[in-house]
C-alpha cells in the first residue's frame, strides 16, 4: 500500500461502501420499474402508476421491450460500477470499472431518453418528463465527457470530481422515487405534478451533494 493509499484509504472505503449500497438499491428500483413490473407484475411503486398510466407504460413496453431492457441494464451497470470507478480514480488506479462506468453512463443517458419518448406524454409526468429526460441526457453526457477528457489530459482531480458528479446523476432514482409520494401527500398534488417537483429537486440536489463531496470532503488533493 502506498502512502497516498494509506492516507485516503479510510474515507475512500467509506465512500465506496456507501456508494455501493446506494447503487444496489437504485439498480433494484430501476430494474423493477423498467422491466420486472411488466414481466412479473411486481411493481415496487404501484402507487405512482395509476391504471391509465400503467396501461400506457405496458403498451410502450410491449412495443419495444429491448429499449427498456437495455436501459435498465445500462443504468444498473452504471450505478453498480460507479463506486469502484470513483475509488480507483481517488487511489490513482485503473480497473475495469474505470471503463465500464463511463460507457454504461453514456448508454444509460441516451437510452433513458429513448425509453422516455417510447413511453410518451401519456406516462407519469407527461410532457414535462420528456424535457427532463432530454435535459438529463445532455447534462449526464457532458459530465461523463468532462471526466473522460480530464483522464485523457492527465487532470486526475478533475476526472475524479466529474466521475463523482456522473455517479450522482446515475443515482437520481433513489431520491426521485421516494419523493414523489411525499410531495403528492404533502402538497396534495397529482402524481404528475409530484413527479415534476421531485425530479427538479433531485436533479439539482444531487449536483449539490456531489459538489459538496468533492469540494468539502475530498478537496483538491489526490
Amino acid at each position: 500500500m502506498t502512502d497516498r493509499q494509506a492516507t485516503v484509504g479510510a474515507p475512500t472505503d467509506l465512500l465506496y461502501k456507501a456508494g455501493l449500497a446506494v447503487g444496489m438499491v437504485t439498480a433494484l428500483a430501476v430494474v423493477n420499474q423498467y422491466v420486472l413490473r411488466f414481466l412479473i407484475d411486481s411493481n415496487l411503486f404501484a402507487a405512482l402508476t395509476p391504471a391509465g398510466i400503467a396501461e400506457n407504460d405496458a403498451m410502450a413496453f410491449s412495443a419495444a421491450p429491448h429499449w427498456f431492457v437495455l436501459y435498465a441494464a445500462a443504468a444498473a451497470l452504471a450505478v453498480l460500477s460507479g463506486p469502484a470507478a470513483v475509488r480507483a480514480s481517488i487511489l490513482g488506479q485503473r480497473g475495469p470499472a474505470s471503463v465500464i462506468f463511463p460507457a454504461a453512463s453514456v448508454a444509460a443517458a441516451v437510452l433513458g431518453a429513448v425509453v422516455a419518448f417510447a413511453l410518451g406524454p401519456g406516462s407519469v409526468g407527461g410532457t414535462d418528463l420528456l424535457f427532463y429526460w432530454s435535459g438529463l441526457a445532455y447534462v449526464w453526457l457532458v459530465a461523463v465527457g468532462v471526466s473522460v477528457w480530464a483522464t485523457l489530459t492527465g487532470r486526475r482531480v478533475v476526472a475524479r470530481d466529474w466521475l463523482i458528479h456522473s455517479y450522482g446523476l446515475a443515482c437520481l432514482p433513489i431520491t426521485i422515487y421516494p419523493m414523489i409520494p411525499f410531495w403528492a401527500w404533502a402538497m396534495d398534488m397529482s402524481i404528475g405534478g409530484a413527479t415534476s417537483t421531485s425530479v427538479t429537486l433531485a436533479f439539482a440536489g444531487h449536483f449539490l451533494v456531489s459538489f459538496y463531496v468533492t469540494v468539502q470532503i475530498l478537496g483538491r488533493r489526490l
Binding site: 424535457f131 432530454s134 435535459g135 438529463l136 447534462v139 425530479v199 427538479t200 436533479f203
Partner: peptide
C-alpha cells in the same frame, strides 16, 4: 414548467 426540471443543473454545469 418544461424548463424547470433541468434549468438548475444546466446552469450549474
Amino acid at each position: 414548467i418544461g424548463v424547470m426540471t433541468y434549468l438548475l443543473p444546466f446552469c450549474l454545469l
